[in-house]
């Protein structure tokens, strides 16, 4: 077992190093996310909606869109020169590759959120006096976890279909509906400081995350076969 996780960790490190060697993709995703947040808050400002109330919804929709770009990277960068086959040979187990890519996606997503979430908070001018910050961060973390897990699993699928870039979000979004629901309600509860009322949704997030972190153990062998 330790050997398994050591391999996971090695591939994860390789991916991170690789990502920071040429930061252009990470940076463009970040710029995209920033723009998304800006456009959303600006549009809402124009119609004078009580913007603080829409914060959870805008936050998660922005994260979803940003995630499409961020998550597509995980396997796409192994496409050239048969790198995927080489990695499979080196790791020996396909689920090792899944967990490495999952951790990588989660890291990238969290890095992007470190910039984008505070920015949205400022743009929308959330009245955070009663907010429970730890619960909020927990919701963002668990939401990103699920997003990264499902995204990695489905990216493993779409990356093998040439010319099917557009398929990724189409496959992704219906599966993410329970996560979207739980994450938005948790965020809302955290903002108004009523975490008791929404703590059940935290359990939903945990169950969802666990399910889609364990399910690839059974399914990922079939995804990357051949």
């Amino acid at each position: 077992m330790p050997k398994f996780w050591r391999k996971v960790f090695l591939i994860y490190l390789k991916d991170l190093k690789d990502e920071f060697r040429t930061t252009d993709h990470l940076l463009s995703t970040l710029v995209f996310g920033t723009m998304l947040v800006f456009v959303f808050s600006f549009a809402l400002q124009l119609v004078e909606i009580g913007t603080a109330q829409v914060f959870p919804a805008v936050l998660w929709v922005s994260i979803f869109f940003m995630a499409i770009l961020a998550l597509q990277r995980s396997f796409a960068k192994e496409q050239d020169n048969g790198a995927l086959d080489a990695l499979l040979l080196a790791s020996g187990d396909r689920s090792i590759l899944f967990y490495a890519k999952f951790l990588f996606s989660l890291t990238v997503l969290l890095l992007l959120e470190v910039v984008v979430v505070p920015l949205l908070w400022i743009f929308i001018d959330v009245a955070g006096a009663k907010a429970n910050l730890w619960f909020f961060l927990g919701a963002v973390f668990l939401g990103s976890w699920g997003l990264a897990a499902v995204g990695t699993l489905l990216n493993g699928i779409t990356v093998q279909l040439p010319g099917a870039r557009l398929l990724f979000p189409i496959l992704l979004f219906p599966i993410l509906i329970p996560l979207l629901l739980g994450a938005i309600l948790c965020t809302q509860g955290a903002l108004v400081g009523e975490i008791k009322a929404v703590s059940g949704w935290m359990y939903l997030l945990v169950i969802y995350d666990l399910l889609f972190t364990i399910l690839p153990l059974l399914l990922f062998d079939y995804v990357l076969e051949g």
């Binding site: 279909l161 599966i175 509906i177 059940g200 399910l215 076969e225």
Partner: peptide, 26 residues
């Protein structure tokens, strides 16, 4: 490969349906 991947996705979808139903009901 398309058939194999579609089969995997079909299984993921079916796993997801009860999650969607119970979360929306809740």
């Amino acid at each position: 490969s398309r058939k194999r991947l579609a089969a995997v996705y079909g299984i993921i979808c079916v796993v997801n349906v009860p999650l969607v139903f119970f979360s929306t009901r809740w």
